[in-house]
Amino acid sequence: MHAPGGRAGSTSAGTSTPLVLRCGPELSSPEGIEAQTCVVARGEEIWGRTYYRNATGTALSVVLGLMSPGGRSVRVHCAVEAGDEPAVCETPRRARRGELGDHEAVTEFAGRAGHGPLLLRSGSNPPGD
């Protein structure tokens, strides 16, 4: 599961400002979840994004958080239906503070509504950070 559109430098139709992604490794769980979490920036906006597949056969709950300098953070809950189709969960966009590397995104997958064990945790920090 690769972040669509490549890494740094991709643009969207009608937008000349490049979309920059800082992604952690692609991870998978024995239960059938695959995920990759990224910090995404375009111009002065920044947000968290996770790309995932849920092949567990059950609906899951996902919490995606974006931590920024100065203790600022935002978090969202995404409902993940059972199925093996690729999908995306994103935080709201906010004004970027500092450099891209000053921000971190973390995603946690658990049973529906957060009940049940933690099945997978995915982060935006590339190996070696």
Rank of each mutant, 00 (worst) to 15 (best):
E90V: 13
A3W: 01
L100R: 03
P117I: 00
S73L: 13
L64E: 12
T58C: 03
P4E: 08
Y52R: 03
T37P: 09
G32W: 05
T91G: 13
R7T: 09
M1Q: 04
T50N: 11
V62I: 13
S68T: 13
A8S: 15
P4F: 05
T50L: 06
P30M: 00
Y52C: 02
G128I: 04
G9A: 05
C23L: 08
V63M: 14
L119N: 00
V80G: 02
G6M: 10
L60A: 01
A79W: 02
A8E: 06
M1Y: 03
G70K: 10
S61T: 11
T50K: 07
A3Q: 15
H77A: 12
S28E: 04
H77Y: 15
C38T: 08
R22I: 01
S28R: 09
G5E: 11
W47R: 08
F109D: 01
S28F: 00
V80K: 01
S61K: 02
T17G: 03
C23M: 07
R72Q: 12
R94A: 10
G98H: 06
S124R: 08
G65P: 01
V63D: 15
E26G: 06
P69Q: 12
E81M: 04
G83P: 07
V76P: 11
P92K: 10
A3M: 10
I46Y: 07
G5H: 13
P69R: 06
A35V: 06
E26A: 14
C38V: 11
T17K: 10
G57C: 15
E44P: 00
T56A: 12
G5L: 08
A82D: 13
L66Q: 12
G83N: 08
T15M: 12
P69S: 04
V39G: 03
P4M: 09
D102N: 14
L19V: 15
R72K: 15
A41N: 04
R53D: 00
E31H: 02
S10L: 04
C38P: 15
M67C: 07
I46H: 02
G123M: 04
C78M: 03
E26L: 11
S124D: 05
R7N: 14
L64K: 15
V80I: 15
V88F: 11
H2S: 08
G71S: 12
N54M: 03
G57K: 09
Q36S: 08
T91L: 12
